[in-house]
Amino acid sequence: MNINNQKKENEIILAVETSCDETAAAIVQGGEHILSNVVASQIESHKRFGGVVPELASRHHTENITWILEEAMKKAEVTFDDLDAVAVTEGPGLVGALLVGVNAAKAVAYARRLPLLPVHHISGHIQAARLERPWRYPALALVVSGGHTELVLLREEGEYEVIGQTRDDAAGEAYDKVARTLELPYPGGPYIDKLAAEGTPNIELPIAWLEPDSYDFSFSGLKSAVINTLHNAKQRGETIRSEDLAASFQQSVITVLTEKTKRAADHYQVEQIVLAGGVAANKGLRTAMSNTFASSSVELTIPPFSLCTDNAAMIGAAAHVQWKKNKTAGWDLNGVPGLALT
């Protein structure tokens, strides 16, 4: 499908993102100018269940989707005639949630005779950096979120090569589970980050380095160690300061993330490093990454908080690359929960 053949570089894209529990729409121009970025978070709805309830997320998306689309258009002060394409997260994510965004995007694109651009959610997180500053290649992206922990190499624009990923829990998942053990509210990541800042990392916890040449991660052992440490202390009638436990846990996670990123950066001689995904909002991780690369010539980009957590502006940024490569989808586009990043 290629309805609009006039290729221009300052195209205006309506982007839609519904892969998890955020209903989001944005208008992005030329892959770098955010004209609007609207995110309706459902955190309040899922809080009492201690995690995202997929069916509930899908229901909220359906109720909210056109409101959010309209707000994005209004805030950007654009009309349908200004749009050049509609972009949407194709996957990965919760299947029912993805379907709402995909079907909404298809309907709008079809109704307004616009090209449809499919976007990989992780490429969105990575391309959020484009909204900050232009890329320099080769580049390396560390994507850390509730569902992902990946090291992605970009030898050139839009070419993604996953060189490392988690073998069990995502980093964000480990954060949430540890937070639950420490009886912190949902979602737990930010609370651990806050607690950790007040504690000392004086409790010995394992770091899974895996094979010497591997860029993969593993966090399930660390998560279990935290649970066991608490449990054993309780049995012995001792109390552990949660601040210290949080600090120790956070240090283990951050050490392995920054070390492996550093090693990959050296090995692939990258020019730029991007820290992306929801966990990139973590202060401890941001600071560690900044310190690690402070004295090197590598440029470190960490998008602002609002562009690290799930949003549609990042999908619009990634869609710009799809637009330039003419990678449009047909009306048979479907949500793909396990979509691979290639």
């Binding site: 359906t62 029912g96 379907l99 079907n103 709008v108 079809y110 109704a111």
Partner: peptide, 19 residues
């Protein structure tokens, strides 16, 4: 079907909104 209903409703309301 929850999913089936959502596909129809989302398509209908999004098309209607865009038009």
């Amino acid at each position: 079907s929850y999913t089936g209903v959502r596909i129809g409703v989302t398509t209908a309301k999004s098309m209607a909104w865009a038009l």
